[in-house]
């Protein structure tokens, strides 16, 4: 837990920033003047404004709400706008682009793969009016406690830090066969929606490759929105898939009762 920002005197810090693109590059040293409450993104802006006006970095809201300024600070995937200088240990600060995606330039990476994966997830498909939870006029009647699991996953700001830190993508480069934590969270938000009637379990098991996840929880550790991705999205989905494809008793039960669709 961080402490309140005081009025400490400005001081100098050295930043080692990746300059280059996918063909190559190097870490370049810059010095920035640190004032109270400053975050890494401020330092990068200062370097941009005074020393390297072409230093490429993405950013938008500067308040941890848009998920643009993802980078690896001192080796850890983080949002630059939420990383306070006081929270970093003494010494140089390294700032690098995300490793799991192709580098475009400096701190900017090509995250288009994520948008491609997103398209594969069946969109929200509400039940017909006049059914459970859907009034005749098409408006929904859902209890707060029934939507909270979905709402947690919808806090996602698509910074893709979870995708970056996930070793299945980062080290094993299973982009073709694995959707990654961000999209398991999205799928979970839809699968747990009381009104949704689409079935994404076959996708998750097959193209989505949820079986590649070995629940080592780095996604949850880096999530700046503190979404419990592993425990509240991935493991519940794995359990649903176990019901459907691996548990002989529930499989038999489904066969007997004819419930080949998901619950609820």
């Amino acid at each position: 837990m961080s402490t309140a920002v005081g009025d400490a005197a400005p001081h100098q810090r050295t930043f080692k920033v990746w300059r280059g693109d996918k063909t190559g590059g190097k870490m370049v040293d810059y010095t920035a003047e640190i004032t109270p409450g400053m975050v890494v993104l401020d330092a990068i802006h200062q370097i941009q404004a005074t020393q390297a006006s072409d230093l490429a970095c993405r950013w938008n809201c500067k308040a941890g709400k848009c998920g643009s300024c993802s980078a690896e600070i001192n080796g850890k995937p983080r949002l630059m706008c939420l990383t306070r200088m006081e929270a970093l240990p003494e010494g140089d600060v390294t700032v690098q682009p995300m490793k799991a995606f192709p580098n475009i330039r400096d701190l900017v990476t090509d995250v288009s793969w994520n948008y491609t994966v997103n398209k594969k997830i069946t969109k929200f498909t509400p039940a017909n009016p006049g059914t459970r939870f859907v009034a005749e006029d098409g408006t929904f009647r859902m209890q707060q406690r029934d939507v909270e699991r979905t709402q947690e996953m919808r806090k996602c700001i698509e910074c893709f830090l979870c995708q970056d830190t996930c070793h299945v993508i980062r080290d094993h480069e299973k982009h073709e066969v694995f959707s990654g934590p961000r999209f398991f969270a999205r799928a979970a938000s839809l699968e747990m929606h009381p009104v949704d009637v689409a079935d994404r379990e076959p996708f998750l098991k097959n193209e989505g490759g949820i079986g590649f996840c070995n629940i080592t929880k780095c996604c949850t550790e880096v999530c700046p929105e503190h979404i419990t991705i592993t425990d509240n999205a991935i493991i519940p989905l794995k359990e649903r898939i176990a019901d459907r494809y691996y548990d002989p008793v529930t499989m038999l039960w489904r066969w007997v009762t004819g419930a080949d669709k998901k619950d609820g």
Binding site: T139, M142, Q144, D196
Partner: peptide, 20 residues
């Protein structure tokens, strides 16, 4: 707003299950 809900927005709810 109702259309957004049809498209998947999950607003907070009233006690009787409507949009809060």
């Amino acid at each position: 707003v109702r259309e957004l809900e049809q498209w998947g927005a999950v607003f907070d709810r009233t006690k009787d299950g409507k949009i809060l």
